[in-house]
Design a protein around this nucleic acid. Sequence first.
RNA 1: GCGCCCGUAGCUCAACCGGAUAGAGCAUCGGCCUUCUAAGCCGAGGGUUCCGCGUUCGAGUCGCGGCGGGCGCGCCA
Length: 607
Amino acid sequence: MNFFTRRITVLRMDLDFFRHSIESALAPLVPDGAVRGLVSEPPPPKVDRGGGSGKARRSSGQRVKLADLSVPCFRLTRAFEGMKPPAIAVHLLTGLAGPPAGFSDVVANGPYLNFFYDPAVLAEKVLEGEIEPAADTGLTILVEYSSPNIAKPFHIGHLRTTILGECLARMLEHQGHTVVRINHLGDWGVQTGFQILAWRRWGRDAELERGGIRYLCDLYVRINAEAEDDPSLADQARALFRSLEEGDASVREDWRRFVDITLEELGRSYGRLGVGFDRYDGESSYETMIPGVLEELDESGMLYESEGARVVDVEGLEEPCILVKSDGATIYQTRDVAAALFRWKTWPGFSRCLYVVAANQEFHFRQVFGVFDRMRPDGAGRLRHVKFGMVRDAAGDIFSTRGGASARLDDILDEARDRALDLVREKSGPLQDEMAVAEAVGCAALAYEFLRRSPNRDLRFVFEEASRPDGDTGPYLQYTHARCCSIINECGGMPAGPWDPSLLDGPEEVEVLKALLRLPSAVGRSADHGSDAYDTSTFTSALMELARSFGSFYTASGDAGSGQRYRYPVRDAGPELRASRLRLVDSVRRALAWGLHLLTIQAPERM
RNA sequence: GCGCCCGUAGCUCAACCGGAUAGAGCAUCGGCCUUCUAAGCCGAGGGUUCCGCGUUCGAGUCGCGGCGGGCGCGCCA
């Protein structure tokens, strides 16, 4: 059992209603559409240290909100020649003669023209939103991610590409693009030779059956350790890889077996993460295409010999790209070029092919993209390296593949689940599916830890910190979702009748509504093939703002500024207020379920 | 040496096109549960945004120069 939301859906809202309202109200007052794109959100409310008793800020108004939306008048100085920004603000305010549709107030504050939502209109526009699938854009985007090496251990660092890639894929899909998920398995090359060499020296069938990937990794670590002292082992490994490429039957048999075992086990682990691929096109699958690629390069005159190797010049790089080593074998650049050509042929006219791979591969991809761009000018520029920083451990060291730690993806997920299980048992009441919940919470902790950060920077991963239940974490989002479910449950489900948006006029309610309103556009700022933004943290923080605003709303509603405290602000609120609050709770619930799905995180209804 | 990335609170990270008082979380301190999830909420302290110069009405954000860290620079992947 798991709690993944089934279908990708989109919260559809009349998003731009408020911005358009301001723009069209100002349009007659400003020459040639200069207001377009000027509407922006001010900084969040700040505590006024000037006074206040410090009690019940809801009623004391201690927090000062600058505005909900504002128009900075600096950039209108050209349109209003000779006027200073504050004067422009006043001028526009006078011309408006009252707040535009959807707003309850408009004021001039220095150089800013500030607008305040009419809470009832805001509530109506936001909460009447429907959930429906995104429209098809007709564009195809390929996303290559995860791509583990079958010989080497899958360490924490691989989780970053796996989760980041899946999340970007979902976000792009959400925006109506056709996404093809590709796992470019590292199942070819000299390291495969090492793998086979180790197997032939020490391998035992029974152990392989029992240990699976873990056993293969142990062998790989061992052969690498011995190769430190015995350089001839590397020669043997290279020779084995060459015979693999040349089609030696017995070598190929061993290799096939390792690939199958790895794929089977990996597939189960991916399932736990909600990650799934359309294609497992490993490096080996381009083997047969390589002669054709080299032939084409040769005929076009791009390929030439340099120090025994065969290379191609790349624009903007001083060093050419090696495609055939001096021993006649291929190199991973060769296979990546072949893969790119294959993809261009298989999905002709794709608008992007994203490579979600660590930043230290940047030079490699510049070479590969450079060769591709020369060979397929009509597809040039569509290959993009979505790079991200190294993952380091608590001591600041990079997770090593050669080191003894033979972690499998499953081991990492198990640890996350076990840590979560302790919390579930400690914090929740008895749950009949506590293992499934623990699994969901554990994976959420992991996924969120990667998605909350901008990809550029290196990242320090500490299990203790990632699996913390509170604060800026995946489990907090899940918890908020579960609370929403619980509230609706306690009220006996959603009422069918009408609801009154004007009852949702408190400052906390408005903040929740604003957080909801921001959400859909945040997806586009996180993943957009047009601007080539691929940064999940933008959406992640928008979703977190929603959850936090809900927490404040929920507590504040139980307070009601009266001093009288009642603990069931929804159920005990009286029929009208209850219906309205339920409406808000339900929208938050749906938005969280949807947002968590985009983040590859499950949304249990209880935890 | 050259190229790319990064430098923001004690720690981990944010900050949409350059916009108002640089925000969260953790940690610390102080409040809030008999009743729908306290895995929560409210508050306090904590900043020369690495340094300098420049661009402009305005710079954490853009440019140049430093300093510090990371990664990469042909037959591994």
